[in-house]
Design a protein around this nucleic acid. Structure first.
Lengths: 135, 135
DNA sequence: ACGATCTAGTTTAGTTATAAACTAAGTAGC
DNA sequence: GCTACTTAGTTTATAACTAAACTAGATCGT
């Protein structure tokens, strides 16, 4: 079985993602949301501490700080000091944040979903499981 | 057949790519290459004009200019004015550029290939063809 | 219990990216 | 062949990013 060209597959993935991001960026901007802000916002429920977000999103800590500041200023996120560790900030998505997040993710879902729909349901399942193995 | 959650697949792809980028960035820096510079460099053969590069890489034109400037300053790329259209620049990868490009792509191929190797050859083929349909 | 070390998060300072405006060249309509 | 429009690429001014250094709190070893 011929070995697959990793760079070729890489390049396809990269171009696909950047194209989708570029296509949704203006719509997100209309919501008052930067692309990275949405990505941060969307991970808060699962990873409610800045340091975890930085790891999960492969983003430097100061970038997380900056993005959270904007989300907080926009009233989409709140933060509390963790009483068991006064260095840690527990992040909370506000109701307004949840609303914007849902709208932002819907835009992303539409844009990316349009591409996914070119695959059969079986192919979609294979894609998802392939990605899960590679993560 | 249950409909796949587009955001979930998106998030997997995004995290995979950003993690791979973050892991190769330091090695590329040791080669004197920014990540985006490598991506630009690698597309020049196929798209030897700045405007095409901008479209192909979903990158704003000024960013292409900046990256090309650095690549040119490093002696990895040359540019000629297209004699049939004096506005256009025809880009050429120099021998030095070709060498660095090969090394950079090898680093990327190693990092991403390590993930791809978690899939069977058949799964790799399915992944590639799924991406080709979605591009 | 207290100095050394580590971790969470931020600030600062320097770099990088980009939107908006520009120059220069080409194309189209009349 | 001249005015209006489009396209290629760059410059400039501003915003975004991030490496290095910092503050504050936790942990560890003795």
């Amino acid at each position: 079985m011929a070995k697959i060209d990793a760079v070729k597959v890489w390049s396809l993935s990269y171009r696909l993602l950047t194209a989708v991001i570029a296509s949704v960026a203006p719509d997100l901007a209309a919501l008052g949301l930067e692309v990275k802000e949405l990505f941060v916002l969307a991970e808060i429920d699962e990873h409610p501490h800045p340091a975890e977000l930085a790891v999960r999103l492969s983003m430097p800590k100061p970038s997380v700080t900056v993005n959270l500041k904007r989300l907080e200023a926009a009233g989409l996120v709140r933060r509390e000091i963790d009483p068991t560790d006064l260095r840690r900030h527990r992040l909370l998505v506000t109701p307004a944040g949840r609303k914007i997040m849902a709208r932002g993710l819907a835009l992303l879902s539409d844009a990316f979903g349009a591409r996914l729909d070119r695959l059969t349901a079986t192919e979609q399942g294979h894609l998802k499981s392939a990605l899960e193995k590679m993560i």
